[in-house]
Computed example of a mutant assay.
Amino acid sequence: MEIQFIDLKTQYQALKASIDTRIQRVLDHGQYIMGPEVRELEEKLEAYTGAKHCITVASGTEALLISLMAIGIKPGDEIITTPFTFVATAEVIALLGATPVFVDIEPDTCNIDARLVEAAITPKTRAIMPVSLYGQPADMDEINAIATRHGLMVVEDAAQSFGAEYKGRKSCNLSTIGCTSFFPSKPLGCYGDGGAIFTSDGNLAKAMREIRVHGQERRYVHTRIGVGGRMDTLQCAVVLAKLERFEWEVEQRLRVGARYNELLADKLSIVTQRSDRTSVFAQYTVIVENRGEVQERMKVAGVPTAVHYPVTLHSQPAYKALCRASGDLIRSERCATRVMSLPMSADLDQTVQDAIVKVLLEANR
């Protein structure tokens, strides 16, 4: 059997009629930029998360960048975040001339260790950007409490966690601002690039809507510096179609993830999930000592794997001179050499999952 790392083909077949109809509707009305599907999607995402405002944007990276622009991040500012994430998290900070300040992660969840955040705060700190890695929110209550004590903003990088919950609340509605990505491989993905920003602050929402259209308050009146950050109408149409079975997909992801946990219990180290939150398993990730050998053996057996992420951000050539580390980052460095993600999707068949686990355990002997 051919095993897909992320099975978008099966998902498309299940939603084909709806996706095709939605796309054709856009082709018929021809409003490819800021068409009616854009606002329709924003309203549905507001209802789903509970946030008062949703602003769709061109990508998850644009979501982070626009958010930082809206809260006034400028050169010389510092933003506390994790070094164990996709580069976009630090990239947007650096693009604005600010400094990413890295604190280490929890060894079991791979999320930022909230206990280390306060010690990293300086007079230059303006925001905290926790990443909901692999689909599971970080310790948001603790992080929000620290931010409140020090007058800081919290921007949740929820690129991987749309649909997850933290103490009964949806990811993207856990702090001042939440940002997500609709990259095709995400739990809720489009067929290109796309993303969204969530907030319940009306002033921030207004600023973000203006920034995404070149800082434009109304046509040809530019009240602030902005970017070309709109999400295409066609991509909004795809996400609208996928929303029709998204709650089912989240339930299935929880089921598949829990079954991986059961099959691997006491046999292999895994990235764990806290009891007060859920993970939508953007990646299902295990921890192995001899990763290269295990990956090669699994590849030969026909099972694809991936590594998220093999190089910490403070070790990246472009960021070494631009960032600051608060304390050592040993856990991040250790995880970077050992994490490995397995095939994961809502449509993953149990027989296929059994085969994946069998190959993994044999490869890890």
Score class of each variant (00 low, 15 high):
Ile3Leu: 14
Ala14Tyr: 04
Ala17Glu: 07
Ser18Gly: 05
Thr21Ser: 12
Arg22Lys: 03
Arg25Gln: 08
Asp28Asn: 02
Asp28Glu: 13
Tyr32Ala: 09
Val57Pro: 08
Ala58Asp: 06
Ala58Glu: 04
Thr61Leu: 12
Glu62Ala: 15
Ala70Trp: 10
Gly72Asn: 04
Gly72His: 05
Pro75Ile: 04
Thr82Ile: 13
Phe86Pro: 14
Glu91Phe: 06
Glu91His: 04
Val92Gln: 11
Val101Gly: 04
Ile105Ala: 07
Asp108Arg: 14
Thr109Asn: 02
Asn111Pro: 05
Asn111Gly: 13
Ala114Pro: 12
Thr125Ser: 14
Thr125Cys: 12
Ile128Gln: 07
Met129Ile: 07
Pro130Gly: 10
Leu133Thr: 07
Leu133Trp: 01
Pro137Val: 11
Pro137Leu: 08
Pro137Ile: 02
Glu142Gly: 07
Ile143Arg: 12
Asn144Cys: 11
Asn144Pro: 05
Ala145Gly: 08
Met153Val: 13
Phe162Ile: 08
Tyr166Ser: 01
Ser171Asp: 09
Ser185Pro: 10
Gly189Met: 06
Tyr191Thr: 15
Gly194Ile: 01
Glu210Ile: 04
Arg212Ile: 11
Thr223Glu: 10
Arg230Glu: 08
Met231Thr: 09
Thr233Asp: 09
Val239Ser: 00
Leu240Val: 02
Gln252Tyr: 00
Arg255Phe: 07
Ala258Gln: 05
Ala258Tyr: 00
Ala265Asp: 12
Asp266Trp: 05
Val271Tyr: 05
Gln273Phe: 10
Ser275Thr: 09
Asp276Arg: 03
Arg277Gly: 03
Ser279Val: 10
Glu289Cys: 01
Glu293Trp: 07
Ala301Tyr: 03
Tyr309Ile: 15
Ala321Thr: 15
Cys323Pro: 01
Ala325Phe: 02
Ala325Lys: 14
Leu329Ser: 02
Arg331Phe: 12
Ala336Gln: 03
Arg338Met: 07
Asp347His: 13
Asp349His: 09
Asp354Phe: 05
Ile356Glu: 00
Asn364Cys: 08
